[in-house]
Computed example of a mutant assay.
Amino acid sequence: MCKAALTYLLLLIPLISFGQNKEYGFFKTRLVNEQFIVDYSDKLSIKLFGSMKSNTIAHVNHETKKKLEYKPNESLNLGFGVGYRWFGLDVAFNFRGVNHDDDKFGHTKRFDFQSSVYTRKFAGDLSIQRYKGYYLDNPEEYISNFDPDGPYPTRPDINTRRYGVSLLYVFNHGKFSFRSAFIYNQRQIKSTGSFLAGPFFSYFRMDADSSLIISEAESEFDLSQDFRGSEYIRYGIAGGYGYNLVLGHRVFISLSVVIGLGPEIKKTPKLNGVPKNTESKFTGRAATRIALGYNAPKFYCGFSAAGVYAGERDDTEDYLERGVSNAKFFIGKRFNPPKFLLPKEK
C-alpha cells in the first residue's frame, strides 16, 4: 500500500507542476479561438436519439487469458433532447416492441444512470449502475455444438453494482472542443487536439448464487477463484490526449484515450473456507471516447460512444475484468430561440 501511494504521489507531482505553468495555468480560461470553434449555445437545439448502455464482467484465466464473458441483456432506448445555453435535457424510453429477446438472452433488471458534463475546460462523468440478470456471451468456446440461434446460458442470479466519477481538465480548451463532438452546441471547424488530465474514483461489487465458472469450463479456470461478494475500490490520476479531426469544416471524427493509474483496494468475503481478505494493488484503467458525425450551422447528426475498462491484470491468479459502455446515435436541428428565452435588454 505504501509503495502504491508513493508511486501515485510521484505521478501527481509533475501533473500539478504542468498545471501551474504560466501558459497552461490551471485556473486561466483562454478565449475561444474562432478560427477553430464556432459557438451555437445561443441557439435552441432539439434532437432525437437512441442509446444503449451496458455493464460487463469476465472471469479471466491469468495464464491463457481465456475468458468467461457475461453481459446483461442490452436494450435500445429511444428518446428526445433539448438544449439551450447551459441547459440540456435528454429523456429516453424503453420500447418493448424494439427489445423482445428475453427468450434468447434472459431478462435483465437495471438502474443505469450515466451522465457526462462538458464545459469549455472540463469533461466530467458520473455513473450509478445496478444490474441483475446476465447471460454468457461466448458459450461456443466451451459448449460443444452450441447453437447461436438458440437460447444462451443465463444467470438471473448475477447482481452487480457500480458507482463512478471522473473529471478531466482540457488544457487546450481555447481551440479544442469536446462539446462539438458530444453535445453539439459548438462546431469544430479546424482539426486540433488537447492533453487531458484529472482524478477518478469507482466502486464495484458482484454477487451471485454460485461461481461464474460453468461446468463445461471447469478444466479451463482456477475453481478456487470465486469473486462473489468481492468489492473493488479504485482511485487515482488519469492522463491522455484527445483529437478532433475535421473534414470539410462539417464532417468530423473525435477520439480520446485516457489512461488512469492508482491503487485498487480489493475486499473479499469469507467464502468456500477461505477467510476474508483485503489487499491493495497499483493498477490501471483505460477510458475512451469516440464520436463521428456531421455538424452544420442548422443540422447535425452522428454517433458517439464512451467506455471504461478495468481489471487487476494479475499474472499469478485469475481475475475479474469489468467494463462500462454507453453508445448513442442522434439527429438534431438548431433554431433561433423564442423571444421568451432571449435575455432581457437592460
Rank of each mutant, 00 (worst) to 15 (best):
M1C: 08
L9A: 15
L11F: 13
N21M: 13
K28S: 15
V32F: 10
V38G: 01
V38P: 00
D39K: 13
S41C: 07
L44V: 03
I46L: 15
K53F: 00
H62N: 05
Y70I: 01
S75G: 01
L76E: 03
G81P: 02
Y84R: 03
W86I: 08
D90N: 06
H107Q: 12
T119K: 14
S127I: 05
N138D: 13
E141I: 07
E141Q: 12
Y142V: 06
F146M: 03
P148D: 09
T154L: 01
N159R: 10
G164S: 14
V170E: 06
V170I: 14
H173M: 08
R179Q: 10
S180G: 13
A181E: 04
A181T: 07
S191P: 09
T192K: 04
F200E: 08
F200L: 04
D207G: 05
A208L: 03
D209M: 03
S210Q: 08
A217D: 02
Q225P: 10
F227W: 05
E231I: 09
I237L: 08
N244P: 08
V251Q: 05
F252M: 07
S256Q: 15
V257R: 06
V274T: 13
F282K: 01
T283K: 13
T283D: 11
N295D: 15
Y300V: 02
G302V: 06
A306P: 00
D314G: 05
G323K: 04
S325K: 02
K333T: 11
R334L: 09
F335G: 07
P337V: 10
K339H: 12
L342V: 11
P343C: 07
P343E: 14
K344N: 09
K344I: 10
E345D: 12
